[in-house]
Nucleic acid binder design. Structure first.
Length: 499
RNA sequence: GUCCCCGUCGUCUAGCCCGGCCUAGGACAUCGCCCUUUCACGGCGGUAACACGGGUUCAAAUCCCGUCGGGGACGCCA
């Protein structure tokens, strides 16, 4: 019971939209913290002043919240280790760096970038690891002070110890790097700005982070960071490096693969619970490995860092769509309606302030359409197929393969001529009548009728479609929905005009 | 180049740590059938994988070595 509370952190840079890879990292941190009753920290890594922007930070928080994540400490909620924005912590980094120099764990380096570049090329040519030679390591501290006083720019480097650097990674096990493969890293630039690899460690240490869960692109940086913890005399946290998410071409997932940011998915009409579920399944599977759908609560219960897979994963849009369809079908109709409404308004299919009748009708329309789509975004297009009257010429082309189409349509026109409102029962009777009169059956009977009504041989069942059209035709919609009779007559008139 | 990580169906993965229960399980996609006077939804079924080569062992997807392939790092970027 005395076990220490776990503390994890998600530390994004506000330099753009929240990417799925980062979102998955945020999710795993969150799941781990929530399951263990620990603390989830949000820290903003904005040391790169040029690329960081306040609006991205706001958006970042919104995207995380939309996904269903929350945090216990962060720039917006505060906490015992505030501030949570690196740009507000500069003084700390400076102080600690100077202390490290005093303790001889770090040193001033006067090498110029050109000099370093030459050394690197030389090393590469000789087939050596291109790491820093360490030539400033043994500079006399009095000399160094003098040169600095004279205005010579100096960076601060951490001295990497001689022994191999080991650390524990929860997803990969024990990892060891030979000391010779690790360069003495710069922790303070000569202009006084601290370096990322250094500030993360200071912050993680100060914030008492127990588990560092992050992308595996940081794996090779980890030995430098471990050396820093050791120099600082602070406990090294456990690490968990998550594999990279790849695009279909096995390249690191990026904008050119299409939708990759959380905002993209939200705009398409992917449900947050579907995305969360999908992201959780990328690199993690429950024990047994046979279950696919999880609510956030179930994920919290089942999640385990130890079960995270080390190999990289290709992002599969189709499976995300499958999950989205699953959750779309499970969602209460009122919620789907609320989420779908803006898409219809933008397409000019629904008014800004739909009245109650329209909302009711819209609900029916959605239950009809939802089984046909992967994401909300596709709804207006699907609906347009039904709500807007299709071009008669297109229908005409489809009609040719049905032998008795002409007879069926004339009979239909005859029957429907006097009906201003067609009920489902009336429609059934009409179809029976046409069947009796023309002898057309099955597809020969039903398809021509469907084509004339909605411009396609496939679509919703008639007993749902007919009332939808008829009711819609009486509503004050931005675009008039044509009734059954209007549709049939319009088509027949068009035919007449064609001769 | 050097160092580190990774390698099970097309894809996500279970199994690997503690070898036999694996004629390798589930899911997405795909194909077929059923439901449906259409399509979609739904139901049922099929195709499909242990990267390769050596060991160790009575027995290897599982342990060891090597090869190959992919990724990352080696920055006064994050």
């Amino acid at each position: 019971m005395a076990e220490k509370k776990v503390r994890v952190r998600f530390a994004p840079s506000p330099t753009g939209q929240l990417h799925v890879g980062n979102a998955r990292t945020a999710l795993f941190n969150w799941l781990f913290a929530r399951q263990r009753g620990g603390v989830n920290v949000l820290r903003i890594e904005d040391t790169d002043v040029e690329r960081s922007e306040a609006r991205y930070e706001t958006q970042l928080l919104e995207d995380l919240k939309w996904l269903g994540l929350d945090w216990d400490e962060g720039p917006d909620v505060g906490g015992p280790y505030a501030p949570y924005r690196q740009s507000d912590r500069m003084q700390i980094y400076q102080t600690v760096a100077e202390r490290l120099v005093e303790e001889k764990k770090a040193y001033y380096c006067f090498c110029t970038p050109e000099e370093l570049e030459r050394d690197r090329e030389q090393a590469l040519k000789e087939g050596r690891q291109p790491i820093y030679s360490g030539k400033c390591r043994d500079l006399d501290s009095a000399d160094a002070a003098e040169r600095r006083a004279a205005g010579e720019p100096a960076a601060i480097r951490l001295e990497i110890p001689e022994h191999p650097i080991k650390f524990y990674d929860v997803v990969r096990g024990e990892v060891e790097f030979p000391s010779e493969s690790v360069s003495d890293p710069i922790i303070m630039r000569s202009n006084g700005v601290p370096v990322y690899n250094y500030v993360v460690v200071i912050d993680d240490a100060e914030m008492k982070i127990t588990h560092v869960i992050r992308g595996d692109d940081h794996l090779s940086n980890t030995p430098k960071q471990v050396a820093l913890y050791e120099a600082l005399g602070l406990p090294v946290p456990k690490f968990a490096h998550l594999s990279t998410i790849l695009g279909p071409d096995r390249e690191r997932l990026s904008k050119r693969h299409g939708a990759t940011s959380i905002a993209n998915f939200r705009d398409m009409g992917i449900l947050p619970e579907a995305l969360m579920n999908y992201l959780a399944l990328l690199g993690w599977a429950p024990s047994g490995g046979t279950r696919e759908t999880f609510t956030p609560q179930e994920l919290i219960k089942e999640f385990s860092l130890k079960r995270v897979t080390p190999s990289s994963a290709i992002f599969d849009m189709e499976k995300l769509y499958w999950l989205n369809r699953h959750y779309l079908k499970k969602s209460p109709p009122a919620r789907v309606a609320q989420l779908a409404l803006p898409y219809f308004q933008r397409a000019g299919l629904l008014p800004k302030q739909p009245n109650e009748q329209i909302s009711l009708w819209f609900g029916k329309l959605l239950t009809l359409l939802v089984p046909y789509v992967d994401k909300l975004e596709q709804l207006p297009e699907k609906a347009a197929q039904i709500l807007r009257y299709p071009a008669p010429s297109a229908s005409e082309n489809l009609l040719s393969e049905f032998a008795k189409a002409d007879a069926v349509l004339s009979a239909l026109m005859e029957q429907i001529y006097n009906d201003s409102f067609v009920t489902t029962d009336r429609f059934k009777a009409i179809m029976a009548e046409i069947e009796a009169k023309t002898g057309a059956k099955g597809k020969d009977l039903f398809h021509p009728v469907r084509i004339v009504l909605i411009g396609s041989p496939s679509g919703p069942a008639f007993d749902q479609l007919i009332p939808l059209l008829e009711e819609g035709s009486r509503l004050p919609l931005p675009e008039h929905v044509k009734s059954v009779r209007e549709r049939v007559s319009e088509f027949m008139d068009w035919r007449k005009r064609q001769g």
